[in-house]
Each structure stands twice: as C-alpha cells, then as structure tokens.
Nucleic acid binder design. Sequence first.
DNA 1: GACCAGGCACATC
DNA 2: GATGTGCATGGT
Length: 221
Amino acid sequence: MAKSQFPNPKSHKLRLIYQRLYKTFGPQHWWPAKTPFEVMVGAILTQNTNWQNVEKAIRNLRKAELLDAHKLYRLPHRRLAQLIRPSGYFNIKARRLKNFLKFYIENYKANVLKMRAQDTGRLREELLSVNGIGQETADSILLYALDKPVFVVDAYTKRICSRHGLLCEGASYQDTQKLFTQNLKNDVQLFNEYHALLVRLGKDFCLKSRPRCRMCPLTEK
DNA sequence: GACCAGGCACATC
DNA sequence: GATGTGCATGGT
C-alpha cells in the first residue's frame, strides 16, 4: 500500500511536543550520574522516590568508596541498607540492588561493555527476570547506562500522554512505549532527551493535582 | 500533619 | 487480568 501523503498525526504531535519542551527547558543532560554503573544503581534507588533523596544515598556510597559492583555485592545487608537509607524503602532496595549485582557479576563479569554487546531484546528479558527490576528500571538501564534505543515510560509519561489525548487513561506500559517507538525515529539521543523533558515537565507543573496548568508549555494559549 | 516522589512484587479476587 | 497493599525517606 502506498504511504499516505499526510503525516501521521500522532507522530506530528509527538514531534511538536518535543520541540516545545526542548525550546522551553533546553537539554536536560541525563542521566545525572558519573558512570554507567552509577546509572544502574540510581535506576533501582529512584523507584518511587524523589531524585534528591537518591543523590544523598549515592553520595553515601561514593564517600564510602563503595560504588563498585563487587564491593557492593560483598557488603552486609544491614550496612548497605544503612548507606542507602535516604532513598527510602531501604531494606527492599538493598535486596533489589544485591539481586541486580548478582546478575551483573555472574552473567557479565560486572563489565558494562560485555552487557552493551548483548542483544537488546534478550538483555531486556534478562533484566526483567531479576527480582526487583521492572519495566521502567530495565528500560532506564538499557537507555541511560547502555545507550540502547529503548523508550523509558514512567508515571509522568502516561499522565502527560492521556492528558493530551495521545493515549486513553490507564494505558499500559507497552501501549505508552509503542506510541513513542512507532511514531519517532529510533534514536538513542532523542529517546534520552524526550523522556528527561517529560520528567522535567511533570516535576515543574504538578500534573497530578493540576490537570491543565495555564503556565504549562503544552497548554494551548 | 498531609501529600508527593523518575516502582515493584505479591496476595487476592 | 485487575486491584489493593506494603515498602520509607525527605521536601513542600
């Protein structure tokens, strides 16, 4: 079938949103971490938690010179939980971190390059099989630590998309992810910036309590 | 003092 | 498959 001469409306709208967000906020320089390993640790610690609290936990780990897969894996649970305490849910996150570290060490010798060389789809499945790593955490690791072209969906993304008529309310993770991957160029840098900008918009404009803020750069004036 | 934040697993129906 | 609940800190 011949391609339509008219642009796909969803693709068009997604591109407009991106342009407006980028013009308003500029580049976000994500992920805010020094190394890919730090991204992976941060991706687990930030689950349902304010990033500022995660930064405190990561600072504790860095100060103790423990931002290393083997060192962290050997650390007793209580000590690890104590160090990551500011990030909240510290007992559960200490366990999740250990689960991930075991996987990372046993399957990839704690080597980012080995992990990056793995097929993206297969690696995603592997990550999802680790207890404590769900879709958002897996995708954050794939995109921000390993430069894989995977779109990260979070609560802000779903909220913004439903508020702007791109998805119905209650759309699944897969539906939301597909919206972006099927309507945008498969580009790591674009996916990186787009997700970061959506988070920035969500944070700055309190989307939970104010569905249509007049100041929001996406609100039609 | 209440509400919220860059989720996830598990139990129950 | 859908829904409810526990996990916890720190900022506003």
